[in-house]
Amino acid sequence: MMTLNDKKQKMPMLTMLSPITSMLIFLVVIPLIYVLVLSFCKTNEYYQVMFTFSFDNYKNLLSPSYFQVYMNSIVIAAITTVICIVLGYPFAYYIVKQPPKIRTILYMLVIIPFWTNSLIRIYGWKSFLGASGLLNNLFVWLGITHKPLELLFNRGAVVLGMTYTLFPFMVLPLYTAIEKLDLTLIEASYDLGARKVNTFLHVILPLTSSGIFAGAIMVFIPTLGFFFVSDILGGGKSDMIGNLIERQFGSANNWPLGSALSIILILLTLIMVRLYTKAGGKLEDLG
């Protein structure tokens, strides 16, 4: 008898390219290779790409002015990630503990932002925090301040926007990890004399750490790239890697340099995912 598997093995290689595989090749692999090639190219004085091989772009990226942007990016991404963990963990835990009906509703509330345009919501924050925004008007009206406060165009505003945009990416993997937790293990911990804090530290936290790590990756990496948040709420005063990339492909019109930056960002992502799987995390949990 011939099974489906036997059949597959006898087919010529090309027929194994399913529509999805070919789509992936055209939309992901080929552009990636193109970006990689570009990153070793140069531009002439008319900003045209010259296909010569050099490491100049990567050398340029080591200059101190870029370094400052990297540091800013990492600091903002790290703060955002930590805030998301600290807020997201109790939030996800609370959702898991609810009876099924309420749990579904809360879960939907977390997912809904995925379906709405985050750019619009970030503009919403801008008008809310702006000098003549709702918050400042309220403060002045309450007499807390005389002049409107500078709430926008600083690192804090960028972190706020990033946290707001990426919070669901933290909650979902946490939710998955906490839901999978075997409740008998918590009972076993209590049974052995561990109070709530110790049970959390020694049992619950280690057993849900894969969710924390998955969430951290899903927040940290996009934060580096979400240039529109730092553009709109940072007002160019808090540039991140994403802004640099966007500028090279846009106003600066230096595609090779932008490509090199992109490659760096991709490598950074791969390294973090590798660390994650090394620490015992599963790729599926990253969504």
């Binding site: 076993a188 209590y190 004399g193 109070r195 057993l207």
Partner: peptide, 30 residues
């Protein structure tokens, strides 16, 4: 009394050993 305040211990049907701890740490936990 909370379970952790009772000097009573349970052997669970599913054993409920902590998967992230060695056998030594499991036994030493209490």
């Amino acid at each position: 009394k909370e379970p952790f305040d009772r000097n009573i211990n349970t052997v669970f049907q599913s054993y409920a050993l902590f998967p992230h701890m060695s056998i030594y740490d499991n036994i030493a936990f209490g």
